[in-house]
Write a protein that binds this DNA or RNA. Structure first.
Lengths: 136, 136
DNA sequence: CTTAGTGCTTGCAAAACGCAAGTACTAAGA
DNA sequence: TCTTAGTACTTGCGTTTTGCAAGCACTAAG
């Protein structure tokens, strides 16, 4: 078990995903349908391979992601969100909304516009979608 | 200006507060009424003085915090949230709720219970309070 | 039995962090 | 005026984390 800095829930959360990369991996799984190591590497932020491997193992150990062998290709792994991981959805959406609001160079695309218009509806929609996927 | 990794609003947000300390300082100002360097140092997570000084300067440069000389004591500085900083409230509340839900060692105290019961009401209440303070 | 795809691990230099100590400015008391 | 206390940092230095390039291991297909 790893050490926590305090019993504050914010501090404990940041002990898990308080870095520049973990939530980007979550974003890729949650909003972009990415599922494999190779797909995460393709993202425009260009995460290093050792950092990616480390973060995936931490997120798996924290029961935020599950790693399974791909049914289609036995040399491939598939990562998916657990219920605990799915519950990060409101955090991801709020961070996205704040970032779009205060960065002129972050244009709101389709999802960003929907969030601005009706955040609760977006969260509800993605919850249903992600929980549906999780039943597989 | 500092370099951003991409034009994704989540990535841009994490470029600003994606570390283990920044949001704890925001928490202290936002939820605990802390306003000074010395008060931030007292928090149970024990931030190092150089890290605190660095994060305060970053948050000030990002227009999330404002630093002013204390009217009561000219050798003391007072930090307060800007409107941009106040808009981090939903993120902080969502992180707090997630952390409390999934950490057995993070008991929900008064605020945590209120969030569980009616998150929207808590956010509304703190928005009013923080915006009221900001008018001073 | 070689080649491609996929998912890592390793080595090493650079950056960030964490701790202890020191500095600078203001204020108040003797 | 000299000292002491309070507040807010800054500096030095050893440790940890990150970032980049390269290499390795396993599976599948030709």
């Amino acid at each position: 078990m790893e050490k926590t800095r305090s019993d504050c829930p914010i501090s404990c959360s940041l002990d898990v995903f308080g870095d520049k990369w973990s939530l980007l991996i979550i974003r890729d799984v949650m909003l972009r349908g990415k599922v494999s190591y190779g797909q995460f590497l393709e993202s425009e932020e260009k995460i290093a391979t050792n950092i990616l491997a480390n973060r995936l193992s931490v997120l798996e150990a924290e029961n935020i992601l599950i790693k399974r062998v791909s049914p289609a290709n036995r040399s491939k792994f598939i990562y998916s969100l657990t219920p605990k991981g799915i519950d990060l959805l409101p955090i991801v959406i709020e961070i996205m909304d704040w970032g779009a609001k205060y960065n002129a160079n972050c244009p709101r695309r389709e999802l960003g516009q929907k969030i601005k218009k009706d955040k609760a509806a977006v969260i509800k929609e993605y919850y249903q979608k992600l929980r549906g996927d999780a039943e597989q």
